[in-house]
Design a protein around this nucleic acid. Structure first.
Lengths: 215, 215
DNA sequence: CCTACCGATCGGTAGG
DNA sequence: CCTACCGATCGGTAGG
């Protein structure tokens, strides 16, 4: 939203075929796309700036010119993906209540068509729990925000007076089942992610409503 | 079971205070313990043989003398943990049916007391989906075995004639929720793993029994 | 189980 | 955005 302004800051630049800012933004997107691929395929630690740079058609010093450090590049990759998903959400109206739960099932089905992105997310989110990982803060706050949003959705289908603890347990379980299934599915594509997620969500609703037998 | 035989192969070795095989086995265990710690804290790619060796009190060439390569060491770490868990299972009689489901809840509670091991498992299982990772075959077969075992357990509490597809969906969801919760919990220890796992399991049983409302 | 060493790779910087 | 380079680290091997 802030960096894609169509007006060049200096009028003198207008005689170039392509405006400098536009070309820079385009190059940055090319690098971000390459970095998503490489971090997804190798993880952050093993994915190298050299490989990312080759995929983006430049040297690794060029990548560092645009992003400053490897850590910064990782953060930019994660925020870039988040921006795209948020934009997608807003295009379809931010869903609430049980619409959000149905929307999550749609995301699971969409993920069946983009294994690379799924792998990047699965690998980086787990890697982010290791010692002083640059993506730790990103994932911590992402999980926190998702749990609150999904707990609110469950509140609309749970009995009145359901405790926040139970709503948050259902929310964290829902996120967990989606993330955990991705790892299994990346190992074995016969794992049925949509069926397992739907079963979990409707099961959790039954649990919130007291319709489930205790173990 | 095969490598801890108390009898030395050569009688002449008996005059040493400690039998060579016994000392080797002890050293190997020390290395495996150090490797679990380091791979857990850093992941496989960033965890170095040098750091593992220091923690075990030797040089990295010594570690390689015992395990041949870094890949071999990782596999040994994973199989070592599995052996310990299997031994624990057998001590308590291999549980079946709904006993297995209750046993899994016990494992979740136990995991609250061993974050290091949880982190090693969470990091390595996700890292194992990256390009030609040495632990790929281990986790693929582990997930496969767990899914079959847990699907059998759900069969004992599901209506007769429940399809294998539905049983496997419940099983993969159960494994997924446990794995996914570990990542969230490692980021934020207020996440209530036992509550979320119990909710998921009883919810999935309700789903198998048709007691859950479709979304 | 160690000393000593190898080739390879990496992230980052200088300076343009 | 590149060339050229740096120090650091790594897994593995030789040879004992």
């Amino acid at each position: 939203m802030s960096s894609f302004s169509p007006e060049p800051r200096v009028a003198a630049a207008a005689d170039r075929v392509q405006k400098p800012q536009a070309r820079t933004a385009e190059t940055r997107r090319r690098i971000l796309s390459a970095a998503t691929t490489v971090f997804g395929a190798k993880g952050y630690n093993k994915g190298s700036l050299i490989e990312i740079a080759e995929l983006a058609g430049m040297t690794h010093a060029g990548v560092l010119h645009h992003f400053g450090s490897k850590d910064n590049l990782l953060i930019a990759v994660l925020e870039y993906r988040d921006d795209e998903d948020v934009a997608h959400l807003e295009r379809h109206q931010a869903p609430t209540g049980d619409e959000l739960l149905r929307h999550m099932l749609g995301t699971v089905r969409l993920n069946l068509t983009r294994a690379g992105l799924v792998q990047a997310y699965a690998v980086l989110s787990a890697e982010s729990v290791t010692d002083s990982h640059p993506a730790a803060a990103f994932f911590r706050s992402r999980f926190d925000g998702l749990r609150r949003m999904i707990a609110d959705a469950y509140a609309t289908v749970a009995p009145e007076g359901t405790t926040e603890e139970r709503l948050l347990a259902a929310a964290s379980a829902t996120i967990a089942v989606m993330d955990g299934l991705q790892v299994q599915w990346l190992h074995d594509e016969t794992v049925d992610m949509p069926e397992a997620v739907e079963a979990t969500i409707v099961g959790l609703i039954a649990w919130l409503r007291g319709a489930a037998q205790p173990l």
